[in-house]
Amino acid sequence: MAESVMLAVTVCASLAPGEACEWPLALPQGATVADALAAAGLSAQVLSALAVGVWGRTVPLMQPLRDGDRVECCRALTVDPKVARRQRFARQGARAAGLFASRRPGAKQGY
């Protein structure tokens, strides 16, 4: 008798800002990304708003999985990271951010 080989797969999803969920799963050999998402309990309605990938690369839902794969579901960015950095820098000021944030008392300006 042949033993059925199970794949150890992790499904990760960021369903809301500041929230990350992770489900470790054991799936049968030949399981696809869609099978992993269904086993994690993510509905088709939730998945329609998320990008799905394996180890950070976008893949189709019918992509077969390998042992140790990490299926990731990511929301779209709401703010461009470059714009967010500029806004954060403007709020904090030049003295409280970057290279000059932690100077010794009495140290010279700059490098």
Rank of each mutant, 00 (worst) to 15 (best):
M1K: 06
M1T: 11
L7A: 01
V11A: 13
C12Y: 09
A13H: 03
A13P: 00
A13E: 00
A13N: 00
S14M: 09
L15D: 02
L15C: 03
L15I: 08
G18V: 04
G18L: 07
E19R: 12
E19H: 08
A20E: 11
A20Q: 13
A20G: 04
C21W: 08
C21P: 00
C21E: 12
E22K: 03
W23E: 00
W23N: 00
P24I: 00
P24A: 00
L25W: 04
A26T: 15
L27T: 00
P28D: 09
P28W: 08
Q29W: 00
Q29I: 00
Q29M: 04
T32M: 08
V33I: 04
A34I: 11
L37W: 00
A38K: 15
A39T: 02
A39F: 01
A39M: 03
A40D: 03
G41C: 02
G41Y: 01
L42H: 06
L42K: 03
S43Y: 04
S43F: 01
A44K: 13
Q45K: 11
Q45C: 06
Q45F: 06
V46N: 05
V46K: 13
V46D: 10
L47E: 04
L47G: 02
L47C: 08
S48Q: 10
S48K: 12
S48C: 06
A49C: 07
A49L: 07
V52L: 03
G53L: 07
W55I: 00
T58A: 15
V59R: 08
P60N: 13
L61A: 14
L61I: 03
M62F: 08
M62E: 14
M62I: 06
M62R: 15
Q63C: 11
Q63E: 07
L65W: 00
L65S: 04
L65Y: 02
R66H: 11
D67T: 09
D67E: 09
D67Y: 04
G68A: 02
G68D: 03
G68V: 01
D69Q: 03
R70Y: 02
E72P: 03
C73N: 06
A76W: 13
T78L: 09
T78N: 06
V79L: 13
P81C: 07
K82M: 14
V83I: 10
V83F: 07
R85G: 06
R86K: 13
R86C: 06
Q87M: 15
F89T: 08
A90S: 10
G93R: 10
A94E: 12
R95M: 14
A96S: 12
L99Q: 10
F100L: 13
A101S: 15
S102H: 12
S102F: 12
S102G: 12
S102M: 15
R103C: 09
P105H: 11
G106Q: 08
G106T: 07
A107W: 13
K108F: 09
K108G: 11
K108N: 10
Q109N: 09
Q109G: 05
G110W: 11
Y111S: 05
Y111E: 02
Y111M: 05
